[in-house]
């Protein structure tokens, strides 16, 4: 009994047959009325597969559809251009920003802030997360505190951080750090806790000391999960950066959006929001690409 359960758990995917069979203990069912079942497309089944061209095709189609709706709304002048400029106006204003070099300057400042703030948070979160995921004593000391701070709204720290460190880069780092560090610690702790206990026991039976088990077993085993947590928290870092730049800054993408609002440059606001989306997408894809390179063995799991 337990064997078959293990096997099916290992497979880890939803099987078509298992739903229809029902529990073995159930009384035999009366034959269902004969009904021709239409064969559903593989893609529309729960857990069904999809080919890469289809996947990309559907994704692109959704983008195109939304763009089309946007264009239609503006072309028919359903909404005043001040509130929603047309796609061409938005791209025109972005082209202008590229030509005068402002977009590049704004993006460079923001990317720099995100990377530094994110790196500071990560460098601190990894050792602490690994430690509290490994030793319950450290978990008791750190986890409740981190959980408590995690629930404090990051927005509320903005005035405080301005008081502490002004409106320069340091304050941006600080906001990004507050917004990501505490979340990262908990995510990494969970990644480390998922390392199978048998791996650790194997290390012990091989005579390894705790430190070797940590370095040679726990960290490599949780590395793919930690990397994924990093990827997710990098997205949050962008959110907190733009927030900080909107409130108080003299440069950056968020700052440009804020000034654009003052002059009713809706096309610029929307253009920059799209740029932020693209930057996020690029960072995410780079992280995913690196993950596939570093953890090749993970792919088939």
């Amino acid at each position: 009994m337990s064997e078959s359960r293990n096997l099916s758990m290992e497979r880890g995917s939803i099987e078509r047959g298992s739903m229809e069979r029902g529990p073995a203990t159930a009384a035999p069912r009366s034959p269902a009325p004969r009904k021709r079942r239409r064969k559903r497309h593989e893609m529309l089944r729960i857990g069904g597969g999809i080919s890469t061209p289809w996947f990309i095709g559907i994704a692109v189609a959704v983008f195109a559809l939304l763009l089309g709706i946007w264009w239609l709304i503006t072309a028919t002048e359903m909404v005043e251009p001040l509130f929603l400029p047309s796609p061409s106006e938005v791209f025109e204003s972005l082209r202008h920003q590229i030509q005068n070099g402002q977009l590049w300057d704004d993006a460079r400042v923001s990317v720099y802030r995100v990377l530094i703030g994110f790196a500071l948070a990560t460098v601190m979160a990894i050792p602490i997360g690994v430690l509290i995921g490994t030793y319950r004593v450290w978990e008791a000391a750190v986890e409740p505190l981190v959980d408590f701070i995690r629930y404090m709204p990051v927005v509320a720290f903005v005035p405080l951080t301005i008081l502490w460190s002004g409106t320069g880069d340091t304050q941006k780092f600080l906001i990004i750090w507050i917004g990501t560090f505490f979340q990262q610690v908990l995510l990494i702790m969970d990644n480390v806790k998922r390392v199978p206990m048998d791996y650790v026991n194997l290390g012990y039976t091989l005579g390894l000391k705790d430190r070797s088990i940590l370095a040679r077993i726990i960290i490599p085993s949780s590395a793919p999960g930690i990397w994924d947590s990093m990827r997710i928290s990098l997205g949050w870092a962008w959110t907190w950066l733009v927030l900080a730049e909107l409130v108080a800054a003299t440069s950056g993408l968020g700052y440009r959006i804020n000034t654009a609002q003052r002059y009713f440059e809706t096309d610029l606001i929307i253009g920059y929001i799209l740029v932020l989306g693209c930057l996020g997408l690029i960072f995410d894809q780079v992280m995913k690409f690196l993950s596939r390179r570093m953890f090749k063995y993970e792919e088939a799991r």
């Binding site: 199978p196 791996y199 194997l202």
Partner: peptide, 9 residues
Amino acid sequence: FQSYTLFPW
């Protein structure tokens, strides 16, 4: 072990 306990990396 029953779980093969090979390191996937």
